[in-house]
Amino acid sequence: MFYETKLEILDAEFIPTRSMMADVQPYRKSFSFEDGYILETTYRAFCPLESLLQLNGYVRISKDIFIILDMKEWSDYMELYLYRCKQDFTMEVKE
C-alpha cells in the first residue's frame, strides 16, 4: 500500500481532529437501506488503525468531505468505504 494521500478525521462540527496518510483508491460498492435509498461508495481508503475513525463518521480528503459507510479492521490497518457528501455552499467548512 502507498500511504500518499492526506486524510483528516473530522468531529461533529467538521473541525479536523487528526490527520494521517492513507492509500485512497477508486472503488464502487452500493449500500441499500430499508427506506429505499441506495448510496454508492466511490472510494476506499486503507489507513493505520485509529480509534477516532467511526462508522458514519466524516473524513476530509483534499477539499472533499466523505462519510464512512462501512469499515473493516484488519490486523494492522483499516479499510474504509467512503461516500462523497454533496457540499452545501452556504456552509463554510472550517479549516
Rank of each mutant, 00 (worst) to 15 (best):
R28Y: 11
G57T: 01
R44F: 06
K6M: 14
D88S: 13
D64P: 13
P48C: 05
Y58P: 10
R60N: 08
I9P: 05
L55S: 06
K86A: 07
L49N: 01
Q54L: 05
F33T: 02
S62K: 14
E34K: 13
K72D: 11
F31E: 07
M21D: 10
M71W: 06
L53P: 00
E50T: 08
L49D: 00
F31Y: 13
Y58V: 06
E73I: 12
E73A: 13
E40T: 08
M1R: 08
F33R: 05
L80S: 04
M20G: 03
T5P: 03
L80K: 02
T41R: 06
M21R: 05
Y81L: 03
I38K: 00
D64S: 09
K63C: 14
G36A: 12
K63V: 04
D76R: 08
L82Y: 01
Y83P: 04
E50C: 12
E73V: 14
Y77Q: 13
D70T: 15
Y37E: 06
E8Q: 03
S30R: 11
E40D: 04
E79C: 03
M91L: 14
Y27N: 02
E79Q: 10
M71P: 01
M21T: 13
I65F: 01
L52H: 15
F66N: 03
M91H: 15
I68N: 14
L69G: 07
A22M: 05
I61Y: 04
A22D: 00
P26G: 03
C47Y: 13
I38C: 02
M1G: 12
A12D: 07
E92L: 08
S51Q: 12
L55V: 08
F14V: 00
K72F: 10
P16G: 01
S75F: 12
N56L: 11
F33D: 00
S32C: 12
D23Y: 09
D70L: 05
Y43I: 14
A12P: 04
K6T: 12
S19H: 03
W74C: 13
F89S: 09
T41Q: 05
S62E: 15
Y83W: 11
M1F: 10
K72E: 08
L10N: 02
A12L: 11
L10A: 02
L53N: 02
Y37G: 01
Y81G: 01
T41I: 10
Q25M: 13
Y43D: 14
F2I: 15
S19C: 10
T5V: 08
F14K: 02
T90N: 15
F14G: 00
Y3G: 08
Y37A: 09
I67F: 04
I68W: 09
M20A: 08
E4W: 13
F33I: 00
L82V: 06
Y83K: 06
R18H: 11
M78D: 02
L49K: 04
L10D: 02
E50R: 02
V59K: 02
R18W: 13
G57H: 04
E73N: 15
D11F: 01
F46L: 11
C47I: 10
V59T: 01
W74K: 15
S32M: 09
P26T: 12
L7H: 04
Y58M: 07
K86L: 11
E95R: 04
Y81V: 03
W74P: 11
M71D: 15
N56W: 07
E50F: 01
R28T: 13
V24C: 10
P16V: 00
R60H: 06
L80F: 01
I65V: 12
D64K: 12
E40W: 09
V93T: 06
I65P: 01
Y37V: 00
